Computed example of a mutant assay.
Amino acid sequence: MNRLDRARRQVVMGLLCAGLCMAMPALADGLDALTQFMKQARSGRAQFSQSVTSPSKAGQPPRVKTSSGSFEFQRPGKFRFDYRKPFVQTLVADGQTLWLHDVDLNQVTARKQAQVLGSTPAALLTAASDLESLKTDFVFKTEPDRDGLQWVSATPKAAEGQIRTVMVGLRATDKGPELAVMDVQDSLGQRSVLTFTAFELNPVLAAQAFVFRAPPGVDVIRP
């Protein structure tokens, strides 16, 4: 490659880098990224993997359970988790009721959504149209960037709740911030980490995705 070709290549690479920087607007911090995500994301779809780590007891090492599946949400107040491994479970919020179908137990649990989702991680994704409305229930704080993500912590204001804190990691893309990780610490010392891949922003989702009907013969429990 001669000097002229190298110079041309440097110009082309420079233009490509400049175009990429223009396509991916800089976000000041994790709170800025979460604010933009909340404004942009009317719906979403992704694959997820989840690890749940229980605190160690009597000198035993902590236990870690893993699972995976697919996730969809649509504002306001609708989401669906389809767990495929290691057990088949479905969790559906239809805007009024939160349904949990455990196939192995042949059982469905139905709870009023408003009573169980107020200060939970799901509220960060589905309940509110913007970040300001969530500040009634959560205190938000920007955390240092790491692992190529921007981070923000959300701490419930209700001290008696089950959730101690939620860490949200967002990835910058040419379409805006993308949900990558939710790291949840509960009041019993258990840690649950949800990692999202193949995230789709604002897909058109079928209305039936958020409609749940208990299969025939399944016990339905309403606590």
Rank of each mutant, 00 (worst) to 15 (best):
E143S: 06
M13T: 11
D147H: 12
D104V: 07
V152D: 06
L131V: 12
Q150W: 06
K135D: 08
H101R: 00
T155D: 04
P62Q: 03
M182F: 04
S133H: 09
K85D: 15
A214F: 08
K135A: 08
F196C: 00
R222M: 12
V184P: 03
Q190Y: 10
Q60P: 07
R222Y: 09
D104C: 07
M167F: 12
A128M: 05
P216M: 07
P121V: 13
Q36D: 07
L31M: 14
Q74F: 05
T155E: 02
V11Q: 14
A127P: 00
F199L: 14
L105S: 09
G118F: 00
A114M: 06
L105F: 10
M38F: 03
R42V: 11
F79C: 01
Q10T: 11
P215S: 13
V166C: 01
P55N: 00
F37Q: 00
L131F: 05
Q190M: 04
L194Y: 07
R171Q: 12
S49A: 14
G30C: 05
D32R: 06
F73D: 00
V52A: 05
D174E: 15
V168I: 12
F138C: 10
W99P: 05
P144I: 08
R222L: 06
V103R: 15
Q60G: 06
A154I: 06
Q190V: 08
G95I: 00
D32L: 10
G44C: 01
D183L: 01
K39W: 05
D94A: 13
F140V: 06
L15Y: 09
L188V: 07
G217V: 04
K39M: 03
P61I: 00
M24Q: 12
P61T: 02
P215F: 04
V211T: 14
I163N: 01
A28N: 11
